[in-house]
Write a protein that binds this DNA or RNA. Structure first.
Lengths: 352, 352
DNA sequence: ACGTACTTGGAGAGCGCTTTCCGAAGTGTT
DNA sequence: AACACTTCGGAAAGCGCTCTCCAAGTACGT
């Protein structure tokens, strides 16, 4: 007769605390205490309650619990993309890039043992951002990990303004009092510069990422500084957008302007792959004619031929650390804002 | 004075429905109606309510809402890994593989416009599985997308038993009445076989994935069948585990046993990358000496040199479709169980 | 014996929201 | 003008859980 509100066609009403209490012959409160392992419960009752739980097949309702405890056991991973919109193909590219997976893997390595789940959120429009912040204030998630994307994103600021525990992976483009984990990008670029110079390269160019990404700028700055220190006052530069194609294009442009190039630092491995293609097309052998150093030490670096000498970016470790930082922050909201900077290392392979 | 229950240090109490009602001078119920766009509300009141919402900065509390509506606006993506355990490095590899990202990207392309968020769950142990199912029955998520991993996973069965809307990506290893989206793996393998034969290859081998993955078995079966049809009764076979290294090893083994190999079908691009390396080491040119066809058309295929001729696996589309299927299922739980099989296509590049 | 201090379990008040149930007002019909 | 019928807004009952009170029970000191 009942029309059936029906999200579960089979499943009758699920047992509640109340049911368990009835079976065990105690009050709801007592069951709650037992379930949550609060002491001050007579061992005998304790056992009766657990028996009743077994009998009824009781599982606590997380939602109801969260409503009152203000804890959800969830952390949000927000990919904030202030520039593009809902159906921008950019997001597709983003997910296909190993970057995303490595971050998730690193986060999960910490979150999973802690029994915390990850909720993925992508925000593009202003409205989505406002809404996300609203939801977070309500404790939809206990905290948030923000993945920075190109552009000057207002989200970090919004988050700190309302006091939501947050940690960024990659420092914010604008100064914001937020926790973050980042890589010493300058150092990484220096490593590449030093190696290329030591190898004896005379005309060394760089293929950089987009100008509005802090990490990208840091790599450019670090590289230039180091090159200058080695007496190379000027470095031919072409920029791409971290995709393979853009790397190929950039390399061609570089080659056209400076045919004598014998060394190149590429700001990420994917672009390096493209650059490799362009070099091959131009008849240059790597590393014999042109030495190349990539950045990230992604799986692409090993896959490339020749295998890429590259700056290792310990992304998984960084993601894991950001998760730890967030968890600590959630436990102690008064914790002072901190940042952790990782030092990159150079991984030597065939390309340089 | 109040000790402060304190997850938000700054944020006072957030405005509730009650507050909005007070400001607007109506009852909670009316505000609720307006917010949820239920008709039968006087346009004038309607406006007053929205004004009050603006004034107070009210944002509905999703948790509280979900508790009563039994709808969360969340879909769980569960990566069920019945074989390995919490700290198994396997998961790290899994996330780093583009497979994961492509799936997420495809899912989000549908989920995001629908305003639904994705919660990532990894379950390994029996206990985690039970708990997940319990949470799902309580409506922690409106439905679940299951990513199948190696092994005979009990999860799909558990899910259908309790009537949770679920869709698998990749068909279940054991027959289970569950919705799924899959690829016609046999057809894909046939495509590869046909191409290699037409190209004039005489001794064609295969590098397969692990034996307990349905997709992997299908590829083997499809390849063998097609080869047999072309008169090749026997196909040298070596198996790997979908990683690049395993592909390299497998190729070496194959070469050692059958030095005359002039064609090889590799069950995924990553292994193909490894196989390429092994071939180069052995002094064989691709495609001149040995033609190679990969599988997936992942970014690795384009990155490889020579670029890989490969069977295109429309994973994003499949993931998107699975999301659509799930959403439909959630809206109409009585929907009959269905599966969607995608046809792969061969993408011609340099390697064959 | 009484008072004090501590332990233990129950009652009940919420958490913030939706939704059914009603009564009051508005509309049209004969 | 009286009736049935529809529209609209409010009161209130929960959703399932936690947790603060409070009362009763137990142990101890004087």
């Amino acid at each position: 007769m009942t029309a059936g509100t029906g999200r579960v066609p089979v499943g009758e009403r699920l047992p509640t605390l109340e049911d368990v209490a009835r079976v065990a012959g105690v009050s709801r409160a007592t069951v709650s205490r037992v379930i949550n392992g609060i002491r001050n419960v007579d061992p005998q009752l304790h056992e009766m309650v657990w028996n009743a739980v077994g009998q009824t097949g009781y599982v606590p309702n997380r939602l109801a619990r969260s409503l009152v405890t203000r804890r959800t056991g969830t952390v949000a991973l927000v990919v904030s993309d202030s520039e593009s919109h809902d159906d921008d193909p950019f997001m597709g590219r983003f997910f296909a890039d190993p970057y995303f997976g490595r971050v998730v893997g690193g986060l999960m390595s910490v979150l999973r043992p802690a029994g915390i789940q990850l909720a993925l959120q992508i925000v593009g429009t202003e409205e989505q951002r406002t809404r996300l912040v609203g939801d977070l204030r309500h404790g939809q998630a206990d905290g948030v990990i923000v993945l920075s994307l190109p552009g000057h994103d207002p989200l970090p600021r919004m988050l700190t303004d309302v006091g939501v525990p947050a940690v960024m992976i990659g420092r914010p483009a604008d100064p914001v009092p937020i926790n973050y984990v980042d890589l010493a990008n300058e150092t990484g670029a220096s490593l590449a510069a030093d190696h290329l110079v030591e190898r004896g390269c005379q005309l060394i160019a760089m293929i950089s990422g987009p100008a509005d990404v802090p990490a990208s700028n840091d790599r450019i700055a670090g590289f230039r500084r180091s090159m200058a220190r080695h007496g190379h006052a000027w470095v031919p530069l072409a920029s791409g957008n971290f995709t393979q194609e853009s790397g190929e294009t950039a390399m061609r442009a570089l080659l056209a302007e400076n045919p004598g190039i014998d060394g190149v630092f590429v700001a990420n491995d994917l672009m390096a792959l493209g650059a490799l293609l362009a070099l091959r097309d131009a008849g240059r052998r790597v590393p014999d004619d042109v030495a190349m150093v990539g950045f990230d030490d992604s799986s692409a670096a090993v896959a490339a031929s020749p295998a890429l000498t590259t700056v290792r970016h310990p992304l998984e470790d960084m993601a894991a650390e950001s998760a730890r930082l967030l968890l600590a922050r959630i436990d102690d909201p008064s914790m002072r804002i901190s940042s952790v900077i990782y030092e990159p290392t150079l991984v030597l392979r065939q390309s340089a």
